[in-house]
Design a protein around this nucleic acid. Sequence first.
DNA 1: TACCAGGAGAAAA
DNA 2: TTTTCTCATGGT
Length: 209
Amino acid sequence: MVYAALFAAYGPRHWWPADSLFEVMVGAILTQNTAWSNVERALQRLRGLVSLDAEAILNLSTEQLADAIRPAGYFNVKAARLQEFCRSYLIAGGLNGLARLDTAALRRYLLAIKGIGPETADDMLLYAFERPVFVVDAYTRRLFQRLGHLSGNEGYEQIRSAFESALGADVVLFNEYHALIVNHAKAVCKTKPRCDQCCLSEHCAVSGQ
DNA sequence: TACCAGGAGAAAA
DNA sequence: TTTTCTCATGGT
């Protein structure tokens, strides 16, 4: 089993790296198509400017916010998305208001926000709201494609439901699994420059799984 | 210097 | 409906 191999290689990851649940959601938007190291720089700059809450972010001009999150890349796009999310977050009653929704309703609500796609919504659902939703990202696709479990033509929802059906609704497992996949990608990237060539090589923790 | 990285939405075909 | 383009910084 891939999970067992990853867990044996890296141990528990205790994700997501953030000081608050709101910060998890901000990080989920900032990390869109971006390396986490750049997101950390952006979060640090943003923390240096305002407290990390929805009201404070909305009180900034979009230009101020964009400048603060510049290291995360796509800063103009992400500043607008972040403020759009903050508006919807407050309208819904913040964390407590959103937490009252069942998982399907919460996912629909998040996906209806401009700038929140399936992966970002599922990051939030799993790591901020502790809902049993499997996050499918580029690392997941790449790893399972290399292992021969995916062809590469599957859609996001198809992969997500396949994982959820196979694993059952287990928040702790989903949390660790996704974190381990990300950790693995970073680990092999350190060893080899090209991730897509790593998962079948001798140093790979899941080779042959 | 060139290429790549944890996505999403709009425009074009 | 599907494919292509755009957004951008930082590391190697």
